[in-house]
Design a protein around this nucleic acid. Sequence first.
DNA 1: TAAATAAGTTAGGTAAGCCTAACATTTTTT
DNA 2: AAAAAATGTTAGGCTTACCTAACTTATTTA
Lengths: 145, 145
Amino acid sequence: MSKALTPSTQDYLEVILQLSENNHSTRITDIANALNITKASATQAIDTLINEKMVLKEKYGPVSLTKKGELAALKVKKMHKIIREFLVTVLQVDADIANKDACLIEHVISPQTIAGMIAFLEKGNYQISSDLNLKKAAELLKSDL
Amino acid sequence: MSKALTPSTQDYLEVILQLSENNHSTRITDIANALNITKASATQAIDTLINEKMVLKEKYGPVSLTKKGELAALKVKKMHKIIREFLVTVLQVDADIANKDACLIEHVISPQTIAGMIAFLEKGNYQISSDLNLKKAAELLKSDL
DNA sequence: TAAATAAGTTAGGTAAGCCTAACATTTTTT
DNA sequence: AAAAAATGTTAGGCTTACCTAACTTATTTA
């Protein structure tokens, strides 16, 4: 049985997804740098994600997401995006601060509150950043985390 | 030097304040019940708050907040109230869910985002619950956490 | 007031998530 | 290809925040 992901492991998934979008191959060092932790900690965290069948990796090799891991990562990313968007457009929070807050809030917020943000963004006449597809986001969030 | 409070210790302060508002004396058992943890855990957590000069307590006696502890608790309470109010009135989240979310968000949100919520509540024509004084709240949050 | 119950404490244990230091492997450079 | 540098792993430690079990102290009640 797969356990609920912790905030920490969700962060790992998120950066692995991001790194794999930008770069060819994702390495322990990249992850450690992105999260500002040591390589030892990254190795350890990746091990638990491997046990959860979320990532694939051979010894000394690069890290990649499984389908399951990618889905989970996409969910986290969507949450992040919605929250950030909401903070920036509705609450007028500076982009970098909004980003940090989103990173923390995304792990603790309820589906209802996220839904509220989505609804608010949809009906309001705020400028939505182009790559935020709210319909898709709402869909994704229906599946359980 | 007093350390930054963790989310957990902030929760303790919050319930101690709440319990001391309702009841005459606040006991370890009350705190443990309110937070759904064992008495042993409560005892331990209270010990760290005693070291931080946030609460007073004699062996086997009741728990009370110091001035310092009360101030800290009031700040957390204000944060909680603002967030809950925002979720309920702006995002139309159910009261109980809003309450749970506020409890988690209050520990991770930036001053800017809280300020954004306050500003939004102030200018919007939402019904604000009577005991939420936004001016006072904004003041309180200026002092460092 | 003695026995029963409730309240509080202490000791020892667990899990997450980080760390450093030492070591192993791989890649790069000369 | 050998040496140097970078990368990854392992072992052992620390802190927070919980837990259970056993015990002590206080309160209630028969």
